[in-house]
């Protein structure tokens, strides 16, 4: 069967993450939440450590800590803390505490690099099911709330006037972000998740005239980057996660160049 091949499983995992990351990443770009996404992802390493210590699923632990992190930031910014300071404090503390916590788990031999930079070539059938399950959930969630999310992104007051509660939409986006972070750990690792969110969406921007096009082109660019990145990692013997991000970055440079020519 085709899933027996680890390269096929890796490619499918990458495509799954790209499909979830593009629509979500578009909102991250539009709402200027790039650093917020980064912080949520960094916090997930603490979730990984906790899952290993408590022997629960890594996915569940990462979702829980990423969500807790995102909610804490949202609540505290509402109380007048500066967003960037707050993210700097919480994200890096969570990362540091996570790394320290992992070092206490001496009983288990853990390849920390696998969580920091991903281990897409080791994706199992079970991982694949989790990744695609999470991706479908995220796409369904964002698709369901698409118009409401877009309206709240444009203007919270316009949303209110249309009977939409922008805080609820923000919460939905936060939940989608936590799920995406958790499923992407295996593929690109916590340090490069934000790249998979932002780079394909940003690369799609010059090609798009509507928000829907940007999400769609972003998914295509992300999926092609995943497959091409894996292929080059295989040929050049380079780490797979970073190779995927490199290809996406090249797409970004190309579309920016094309836009530069048109203008």
């Amino acid at each position: 069967m085709m899933l027996d091949d680890f390269m096929t499983r890796a490619a499918l995992a990458g495509i799954g993450v790209a499909c979830a990351a593009a629509p979500l990443g578009s909102f991250v770009v539009w709402r200027r939440m790039a650093y917020f996404g980064d912080a949520t992802a960094h916090a997930a390493i603490l979730g990984v450590a906790l899952s290993l210590a408590l022997q629960i699923s890594i996915f569940a632990g990462a979702v829980a800590v990423a969500l807790a992190m995102a909610l804490t930031v949202t609540v505290l910014t509402g109380r007048g803390y500066a967003m960037d300071t707050l993210l700097g404090v919480l994200a890096h503390s969570a990362l540091a505490f996570g790394l320290v916590a992992v070092s206490f788990l001496s009983g288990i031999r853990i390849d920390l690099m696998a969580y920091l930079f991903g281990d897409i070539l080791a994706v199992s059938r079970g991982d694949l099911a989790v990744i695609w399950g999470g991706a479908v959930l995220v796409v369904a969630l964002i698709g369901w709330r698409w118009s409401a999310l877009l309206t709240s992104t444009l203007s919270p007051d316009l949303a209110h006037a249309s009977g939409i509660d922008p805080r609820r939409e923000q919460l939905i986006l936060t939940l989608a972000l936590a799920i995406t972070v958790a499923v992407a750990i295996k593929v690109v690792g916590v340090l490069l998740i934000a790249a998979m969110l932002i780079i394909p969406a940003a690369a799609a921007r010059p090609l798009s005239r509507t928000p829907e096009q940007m999400a769609l082109f972003g998914a295509v660019i992300g999926a092609v980057s995943a497959v091409a990145g894996l292929h080059s990692a295989y040929l050049l013997d380079t780490p797979a996660g970073p190779s995927i991000v490199c290809v996406a970055a090249i797409f970004f440079a190309l579309t920016s160049f094309v836009r530069g020519l048109r203008a």
């Binding site: 770009v29 539009w30 118009s147 921007r205 798009s208 005239r209 928000p211």
Partner: peptide, 16 residues
């Protein structure tokens, strides 16, 4: 935001 592509007709279809 300049990162958000939006035509006038798409805007007018929001959210209804």
């Amino acid at each position: 935001d300049p990162t958000l592509p939006m035509t006038v007709s798409r805007f007018l279809r929001l959210p209804g």
